[in-house]
């Protein structure tokens, strides 16, 4: 019974993906129609300058946003798990959790309105304001990523006994040394997982990016979305196959790394 449900569910999840991968190697011009084995769509992808430009922009935004998200989200998670009570704690927790539950269209629209107000203020004060584009997308994605990293880090720290840090402090280690030698190593797997999560979210987002971007910033998902609205092309299958291969390899590598030095849980 259980097995049947599991197999059916996984089959449903994977059927379109397996077909997509299979037909990425089909020579036929019509997607999802078999025309013999061929790598022509991978070659077409490699020659598609617009697609490559958008992919390069997306990768840079995702890497930047994930890095910012890990820095700020790591701090946020630590504050939620380890910082004692302080004024405004309830507000802090509410704000840190908000991006997780706000619908994408609301996040996108509200961030755009903020950027417009900031641009207006810069215009009034300096007579000049930066355009919306890669920078505003990066700030928006870092904010969403921050919330996800904070959840992962908070859960990791909550599962760890604070006694380890207290023992180090009792033995005379100054606060920064305690953080560097005990807390940070404990947080490290959560920070790594959080970075990957924030990176994937950024690389997959079309709604928030469409709202906050300007004329100059077209990310890969924005380009793919506009193409899908017109019609399906086999190149998109080739692109998805490449993405899956790269992420599967990255996950495999991360899994092997983590297995190598698994920290014992208290």
């Amino acid at each position: 019974m259980r097995r049947v449900g599991l197999v059916l569910g996984l089959g449903f999840l994977w059927l379109p993906i397996l077909l997509l991968i299979g037909y990425a190697f089909s020579a036929d011009r019509i997607p999802f129609q078999w025309g013999g084995f061929s790598l022509r769509w991978f070659a077409a992808l490699a020659a598609n300058a617009r697609m490559l430009d958008a992919a390069w922009l997306s990768l840079r935004i995702a890497a930047g946003a994930a890095t910012l998200a890990v820095l700020l989200g790591g701090m946020t998670g630590w504050v939620l798990a380890r910082h004692g009570p302080f004024r405004g704690r309830a507000l802090f927790g509410l704000l840190a959790g908000a991006p997780l539950v706000l619908p994408e269209v609301v996040t996108g629209l509200s961030l755009l309105l903020l950027f417009v107000v900031l641009q207006g203020a810069a215009e009034a004060a300096l007579g000049w304001s930066p355009d919306r584009g890669a920078l505003t997308i990066l700030l928006a994605h870092a904010t969403v990523g921050l919330a996800y990293v904070a959840v992962v880090v908070q859960a990791r720290l909550a599962g760890m006994d604070a006694a380890l840090e207290e023992a180090a402090a009792d033995l005379g280690a100054p606060p920064f040394t305690v953080f560097r030698t005990v807390t940070l190593p404990l947080m490290a797997p959560a920070l790594g997982a959080g970075w990957l999560l924030a990176f994937t979210l950024s690389l997959d987002d079309v709604v928030v990016a469409s709202f906050v971007s300007g004329p100059a910033g077209t990310t890969l998902p924005m380009l793919v979305f506009s193409q899908l609205r017109i019609g399906l092309t086999p190149e998109i299958n080739a692109l998805a196959t490449m993405l899956l291969a790269v992420t599967a390899l990255a996950l495999l590598g991360a899994g092997l790394l983590l297995r190598g030095r698994n920290t014992p849980r208290s």
Partner: peptide, 24 residues
Amino acid sequence: LLLALVLLPFCTGFLPRLGAWIGL
């Protein structure tokens, strides 16, 4: 392994998966 199989579809990207449904 099963959890990875549930999570891995995320990695193909959300739009190509919709594209696959269009194609199917």
